[in-house]
Design a protein around this nucleic acid. Structure first.
Lengths: 237, 237
DNA sequence: ACAAAAGTGTTGTTACTACACCCATGG
DNA sequence: CCATGGGTGTAGTAACAACACTTTTGT
């Protein structure tokens, strides 16, 4: 079988919810190549897949070099693109991921990487800009029907902190009261029994019941008639 | 750069809504290899990506060989998997797609392919069985917040026919009355002005306003407060 | 005229939003 | 005991589900 072959590359839109002076915001990790054809261009962190390595494994290996092991809470594939043209000799196959980092972890970043707010990326992040947008959309959707937020929070948090995470992703204020009601009713979060001082009345401390992706609610339109509730309907990704 | 390289392969979960005696059902197109290591195994249709070919282009090329040009209404990526182990010498990279075929088109199938109901696949469809399940989930979700159904219907249809498509995917009865109200309000479908005889009162003929994917509704939970309705929030895939 | 199937109107329900009010702690 | 924030209760609302009722055709 004599055919041209491709080098698989994994990269990720790494997202975290950061608290800033004017409210929470979503940030992504970008990497600036020191040398090479795309020097001085911000791009998504990632790198080659080794022979025999799984895609997920390769992705996590590259992320560990950037942000450290405990930080990566959730990884999923977004999209694969073929880049036959960028390098004349090399057929690159980019498998782009979405990776979520818990708020509060402040990893030692290598000097060539840094966080950037998702609204207001450096102008240079070329073809990768729309990957960030797609990742953001995907995350926004998943917040509404799953427990993905577990990957953006520390293990224990107050409802207000959690609402901050939602606000960072959604871009608008979220009522902590209602958020708690919904997530608790869907059994995604539960109180730990501990409390935490916050300057006023101490807040209850919550945690996610499971720290793996759980799809909690069927999508709204055209739900099954009573008595025919089969498997939960939800997008797989 | 001396490293082992991979051969990119595209394949697709091809879905269509078929009308049967006991109601509409969802079917997928499977291919049985005549010879080779997986002979007598059903698997997803697909094949190698040529040098310089786009992934989407390669996918459509392979689909055309199976079902013909006009039939393929929508194609999107599902997942990429690395299969370093199946062939000892060959590193395969499977880019799996979801492809939708309009109901009513009855393409000339090559002798080695045939349609199979999604519930009740031939037991042999090995690693590909869960790809079908994921595709089904994805489609089910998209039905609820977009106009994907355009890719499963003929260009013109009655509301009842459309409801049948929804039933095939969702697996439970859908009230045609309410379906029409919702889709018309969201401006996904509109009447053509034509009517069609069906044995009783003639039905209005409808068509989709656009035959490209349109995300019509934000996901339900935690929607933006009044006055802060930014871009529609929706999963990108 | 009657059966069959489409379209209209209406009522009930669900589930979320918005917000007022009450509670617990620190200074 | 007051300021600060957390927690509880509740009324309002949007959107859908269910279904009865009306309309339009074929036979």
């Amino acid at each position: 079988m004599n055919r041209k072959l491709a080098a698989p590359v994994v990269n990720a839109v790494v997202l975290r919810a950061a608290a800033t002076l004017d409210g929470p915001r979503l940030e992504t990790l970008l990497w600036r190549r020191a040398k090479g054809p795309e020097a001085d261009c911000w791009s998504l962190p990632g790198g080659f897949v080794r022979d025999g390595e799984s895609l997920d494994g390769a992705m996590r290996r590259h992320l560990l070099e950037k942000v450290g092991v405990s930080a990566v809470g959730h990884v999923e594939q977004l999209d694969t693109t073929s880049q036959a043209d960028t390098h004349p000799e090399l057929w690159l196959l980019d498998i782009t991921h979405l990776a979520l980092i818990a708020a509060g972890t402040e990893p030692e970043l290598p000097p060539d990487t840094s966080w950037h707010p998702v609204d207001g990326l450096p102008s240079i992040a070329f073809g990768h800009a729309d990957a960030v947008a797609r990742a953001h959309d995907r995350l926004r959707g998943k917040l509404s029907y799953s427990n993905v937020a577990f990957a953006l929070t520390p293990h224990r948090f107050t409802v207000r902190e959690l609402a901050g995470v939602y606000e960072a992703v959604l871009g608008y204020p979220v009522d902590a009261t209602n958020l708690r009601r919904v997530l608790e009713r869907d059994q995604l979060i539960e109180p730990t029994g501990e409390r935490r001082s916050t300057g006023g009345r101490p807040a209850e401390e919550f945690e996610f019941v499971t720290r793996e992706l759980v799809v909690s609610r069927p999508l709204a339109a055209f739900r099954a008639p009573r008595g025919a509730r089969g498997r939960a309907s939800a997008p797989s990704a």
